[in-house]
Amino acid sequence: MRQRPVDDEAPDRLYMVTGGRTRADESAFDSVSLIVSECEPAPGMQSEHVKILRLTRRPTAVVELSAQLRLPVSVVKILLCDLLDTGRITVRHPSALRSAGGPSPELLKEVLVALQNI
């Protein structure tokens, strides 16, 4: 297996970027929730928050932020909680979270047609 950065040097960094919090209400975000910034970064903001606000000028999925910031998905979610609490971002949740009975036939058809046309 490849050596993963989080296995060794990273715990300190994780502690730093999240201010030692272990878990905010991360359930507010899915791994593919689309994040959109609602303001420009302000002076004195934590550098990860600044990066997120810049990356999310266009809608950006949580996993893409994770890849760009080189931080685990759940750490990104904690950072996003702060920005959501202060109204600096908005979130576009996946519709799958709202449809308990699984995807609708209409949605599946839409995906199928779109895939056939790629």
Partner: peptide
Amino acid sequence: ERAALRATAADALK
């Protein structure tokens, strides 16, 4: 440098 999503992107599937 990265290809951003459309501004209208609102629903991500997996």
